[in-house]
C-alpha cells in the first residue's frame, strides 16, 4: 500500500477518535482562547498597536495549543499497546509519523480558525484582508509545527516526563518558524506586504522541507528502539 495512503489512514483513524472524544480539541481550543483573554490585560486591547503585535499573540496561542495537541498524538497509542501493534503491522514508521503530523495539522488548523474569530472579536482587528495569504502562512507554519510535534511526540512517548520534555525540546527548534510566521502575520494584519515577506515566506518553506525530510528519514530511528 502507498505510504502516503497509509499515513492518511492513520490520520483518519486518529481524527475519528479525536472527533469522538474531543480530548485535545477542547483542551487546545480552550487554552488558546484563555491566552487571548489573558493578553488583553497585558496591553490596551483598544489601541491601534494591537495589529502590530497581533501576529506574535496569535502564534504564541497556536504554539501553546499545539503542544497540547501533539502531546496526545502518540500518547493515544499507549493504552493497550497499540503502538506496538501498529509498528508490527505493515504501516511504515514514516507513514505513522506523517499520519500523526497530518492529524495535528488538521486539529491545529481548527484551533487556529476558532482563535482568529475570537481574536477579531475581542481586539477589533480586521484579519480577513488577505484571506488566501493568511491561510497560506497558517498552513505552512502549522505543517512545520505539526511535523516537529509528531517527531518529538514520538521521541518522548515512552518517557516518564513526557509532558515536560516535549515543550522543552520543541519550542527552541520551532523558533525560526515562529519568527517567520509572526512577521508574516503582522504584515498581513497591518495590510502591508513588503519584500521582506517573501524572504520570511521562504524561511517557512525551507523549514518545512528540511524538517519534514529529517522527520521522515529518522522515523524508524525514533520509533523503533
Amino acid at each position: 500500500m502507498n505510504p502516503l495512503l497509509q499515513a492518511l489512514w492513520v490520520a483518519r483513524k486518529d481524527l475519528a477518535i479525536e472527533f469522538r472524544t474531543k480530548e485535545s480539541l477542547n483542551a487546545a481550543g480552550a487554552f488558546a482562547v484563555v491566552i487571548l483573554l489573558l493578553f488583553s490585560f497585558v496591553f490596551d486591547p483598544a489601541s491601534p498597536e494591537v495589529a502590530t503585535i497581533g501576529g506574535g499573540l496569535l502564534w504564541l496561542c497556536f504554539a501553546f495549543g499545539g503542544a497540547l495537541i501533539f502531546n496526545r498524538g502518540f500518547a493515544r497509542e499507549l493504552p493497550n499497546e497499540c503502538l506496538d501493534a501498529l509498528l508490527a503491522s505493515p504501516v511504515s514508521a514514516s507513514s505513522l509519523l506523517a499520519g500523526k503530523a497530518i492529524t495535528s495539522f488538521v486539529l491545529l488548523l481548527i484551533v487556529e480558525a476558532v482563535s482568529l474569530f475570537v481574536f477579531g472579536f475581542f481586539y477589533d482587528v480586521r484579519w480577513w484582508l488577505h484571506p488566501l495569504k493568511l491561510f497560506a502562512v497558517c498552513a505552512l507554519a502549522t505543517w512545520g509545527i505539526a511535523i516537529l510535534g509528531a517527531a518529538f511526540g514520538a521521541m518522548t512517548v515512552n518517557l516518564k516526563l513526557r509532558e515536560l520534555m516535549l515543550p522543552v525540546l520543541i519550542y527552541p527548534l520551532l523558533l525560526p518558524l515562529l519568527m517567520a510566521a509572526i512577521e508574516l502575520t503582522n504584515n498581513l494584519l497591518m495590510n502591508q506586504v513588503t519584500s521582506d515577506s517573501l524572504l520570511w515566506g521562504r524561511v517557512l518553506l525551507v523549514f518545512d522541507i528540511v524538517y519534514t525530510s529529517l522527520a521522515v528519514a529518522l522515523a524508524e530511528t525514533i520509533l523503533v528502539n
Partner: peptide, 22 residues
C-alpha cells in the same frame, strides 16, 4: 530522562541531527 542506553543513544542521536540545523 532515558534509562535504557540503546534507546537513549538512538533518540539523542536523532535530536542531535534535528538540532544541528540551528
Amino acid at each position: 530522562a532515558i534509562d535504557e542506553p540503546t534507546q537513549r543513544g538512538r533518540l539523542s542521536a536523532a535530536l542531535s541531527i534535528f538540532g544541528f540545523v540551528d
